[in-house]
């Protein structure tokens, strides 16, 4: 199942709708890379609220997405990680180092506003 990507001002919002397979995640990575370029987005929100498990592969892919988008000039924030999911992730030793996180979409937007304002290189 493909992840829809919405454009909201200077940001892209990828809102995961259901359980993701590995290939869905890889597809998401490719799509985001492409759109950030074509829309010249400054920030990306990936909403993972519906995910009931984020395993090592998913973590690795999310981190890779964030790092890749950074190189393309956009900040990434992962929002909506559930309490039990966060607990399982740290038990697995997965921490999403170097990737922004926020409670939900609203917080994610605030996070990006803050981040992109502070990075003059990415300014309008």
């Amino acid at each position: 199942m493909q992840v829809p990507i919405l454009k909201q001002g200077g940001y892209l919002i990828a809102s995961i709708q259901s359980v993701l397979s590995d290939s869905d995640l890889v597809q998401l990575r490719d799509n985001l890379g492409e759109r950030v370029g074509s829309y010249r987005s400054r920030g990306v929100i990936i909403d993972v609220t519906v995910l009931d498990v984020i395993d090592s592969f998913a973590t690795r892919t999310l981190r890779a997405i964030a790092h890749m988008l950074k190189l393309r000039g956009a900040e990434t924030v992962i929002v909506g990680i559930q309490p039990d999911v966060a607990f399982a992730m740290v038990q697995l030793g997965l921490t999403l180092e170097g990737v922004g996180t926020a409670l939900d979409l609203e917080e994610g937007l605030a996070y990006l506003d803050e981040k992109t304002k502070r990075a003059p290189v990415n300014g309008n």
Binding site: V79, M89, V90, Q91, T95, Y111
Partner: peptide, 12 residues
């Protein structure tokens, strides 16, 4: 340490 990390994953 894990508590700190898990909280951060949730944005806190």
């Amino acid at each position: 340490v894990k508590t700190v990390e898990a909280s951060r994953l949730m944005g806190a």
